[in-house]
Amino acid sequence: MLVEVTGGHVVFSTRKGVFRSGQVYALNGVELTIRRGETVALVGESGSGKTTLGRLTLRLVEPSQGKVFFDGKEITHASESELRPFRQRAQIVFQDPFSSLNPYMSVRELIEEPLIIDGEGSSQERRSRVDAALEAVDLLPASRFAAKYPNQMSGGQRQRVGIARALVRDPDYIVTDEPVSMIDASSRIEILALLDRLQRERRMAFLFITHDIATARYFADRIAVMYAGTIVEEAPAGAVIDTPMHPYTQALIAAVPEPDPANRFKRRPVVPGEPGSADGRVVGCPFYNRCPHRMTGVCDTITPPLAEWESGHRTACHLYDSRYATLEPQSGSPLVRTDLQYSPMNGR
């Protein structure tokens, strides 16, 4: 196992107003493993903890509970100096092409910077490594792109620079964090195809954070679905999309609009209510208050563990637990209810 998080909790302290301070429970007991050369996609709504989990695997945040391993070595509370060799092997790529690059640095300076920080090679060696990284991301001719500044490039080219900056250290593990963005679907596909190729060439492991579950299918081996700081489902990519088990995943998939002229005559089934909150500790299932199938007495008191109900397909939901099979869920199948949708009358 290259990357492993067990029982990971992350709590942030925030200031709410002048005298009150609050706690944000960003991760609540997360289990995640990534093998060498594997791509895992992390999907889920905004604020569900995807970025925090990505940062936890990179030990850019420290867990309040739980453990973090990299390549078999525990790094849960390792100090910055202990983390040094690890920092070179694990990288993050921010996919927001407009805010993540220093506008005053040339492409060469941007990509060379990590090597200078690491104290790597002579300036001659660094030069050729920067060129090689630019070539790897198809920014050709490398010498011409190396002289440019971020504002002289398109969004897609800036993203490639971000990737080259991570690649130059020749890492084993990369986290890519894609914001809910306006980037055209087709330019995103291009970047993903590039990452896919690099991964096969170099056998890197990827944690691919995205809002686009449909794209995740093609570029990930497994998909993990997050809700309110926990992973609620995790399985091979095709299985998550074709046979989703968790009610939240089912709702997530039902909400994806595929081009079909019949769509406009149907209302889309949606989960009522507002996104999951990280303001307090949740007793029971974090999805309880929005779940169309909740079983009162169980779901609101017992936290469902992420369990493997089917081979290779894990989900955190009591509906699949035979102990509760006699209980009547709030609704029968189909699992995604179409009657619980937004209506101007019930004003959700």
């Binding site: 963005s181 709702a251 949606v270 996104p275």
Partner: peptide, 21 residues
């Protein structure tokens, strides 16, 4: 003009239902 592009798919679906109404 791109009224839902900064929103999650589930929230986007809620807005689309509103527009249908």
């Amino acid at each position: 003009d791109e009224p839902t592009s900064a929103l999650d798919v589930s929230v986007q679906a809620q807005i689309m239902n509103l527009l249908k109404d």
